[in-house]
Computed example of a mutant assay.
Amino acid sequence: MDIKPLILIVEDDKPIKKFMKVSLEAQGYKCIETEFGNTAIALIFSNNPDIIILDLGLPDIDGLNVIEKVRESTKARIIVVSARGHESEKVEALDSGADDYLTKPFSVAELLARIRVALRHFNGDSNSQNIAQSVFQVKDLKIDFEKRRVTILHEEIHLTPMEYKLIELMSRYAGRVLTHKYIIDEIWGSYFENETQSLRVFMANIRRKIEKDPAQPQYIITEVGVGYRLVDE
């Protein structure tokens, strides 16, 4: 018997919350819900959902605080749904550890598509954990996948969750050019459009942290007009 994915809906707008719950249950998903961020944190730890659909504007704490409190403790994919549509707010949510961002208003079809993408990533992560290498190293850069730790010359480099996801992806394909589209599809899902500028921002931040001279990078190479490559030697 198939185990249905469990989805936690965190939304304080009751009509939208009901709309999402009814729509998702009609597709066979199991749903739990709350309108409060603090309750959401407790539900995440007690119920271990597969997907978290999270509004940012909650009555007790901001949705970003929810992400920051649970991101390191859950493998659930976090889909932010918010009326905040500005580029900076989207980047902030993704950089805090959200996996996807859906701007209100949205259709049922789009929400279901984002959930399918999230579940593919969730299942892929679970299936690959045991076979993936535990450490990647090139020159003075070392990535410990089990500890999610990045070091240069044994000095730990603090990366945000989104920065870590990007460098982890590139390390899995070290030496190969990853196109902008491929990286965006893998990190945010194919339903994100026009995220190239956000990607450039994140890459610039990573370079500032790991490169001696970000203008002359030795680790992350830009292939102009195509994408990025993490060196492998």
Rank of each mutant, 00 (worst) to 15 (best):
R114L: 08
V135L: 13
D100C: 13
A98Q: 07
N127T: 10
I78D: 01
A93P: 02
R71G: 00
S82L: 07
V66F: 05
P105H: 10
R71F: 01
S126R: 15
I79E: 00
I131V: 14
A76Q: 04
S96M: 04
H86A: 12
I78C: 06
V91C: 04
I67C: 04
D95M: 01
A76K: 00
V108N: 14
D100I: 04
V70R: 02
S134P: 13
N123P: 00
S88G: 05
V80L: 04
A98M: 03
F136D: 11
F106I: 09
K75F: 01
R120A: 07
G124Q: 08
R77I: 04
E72S: 11
V135R: 13
H86I: 09
S134D: 13
N123R: 13
L112I: 15
L94A: 06
Q133C: 04
Q129Y: 13
G97M: 03
D95F: 00
V108P: 03
V81E: 01
V135D: 10
V135G: 05
L119C: 09
K75Q: 02
V66Q: 03
S73Y: 03
V80T: 04
S73L: 07
S126C: 02
L119H: 11
V135E: 14
N130I: 11
K104S: 12
S73R: 05
Q129K: 15
V81R: 02
L94D: 03
T74G: 01
R114E: 12
D99F: 06
L111K: 09
T103V: 15
A109W: 07
S128K: 14
E92A: 15
A83Q: 10
K90P: 10
H86P: 00
E72F: 01
L102Q: 08
E92G: 02
Q129S: 13
K75M: 02
E92K: 15
T74C: 01
N65Q: 15
V117A: 07
I67M: 02
E68V: 01
I115T: 12
G97F: 02
Q133W: 08
L111R: 08
A83N: 07
V108Q: 15
V135W: 06
K75R: 11
I79S: 01
V91Y: 11
F136G: 06
G85I: 06
R116A: 09
R77G: 00
H121M: 09
Q133L: 10
A98L: 08
N127C: 08
L111F: 10
A76H: 03
V66I: 06
S107K: 12
H121R: 14
L94E: 03
V66D: 03
S107N: 11
G85R: 05
V117S: 12
V66A: 06
S107D: 14
A93W: 01
I131Q: 08
L119S: 09
K75I: 00
S134Y: 11
P105G: 06
V91W: 10
R84M: 14
N65M: 07
T103S: 11
S88A: 12
D125A: 01
F136S: 11
A76L: 05
R120E: 09
S107I: 12
A118E: 05
R120Y: 04
E89Q: 13
F106K: 14
A98W: 05
G97H: 01
L64G: 05
T103G: 07
E89Y: 05
Q129D: 11
T103F: 04
R77V: 03
S134G: 08
A113S: 14
K69I: 02
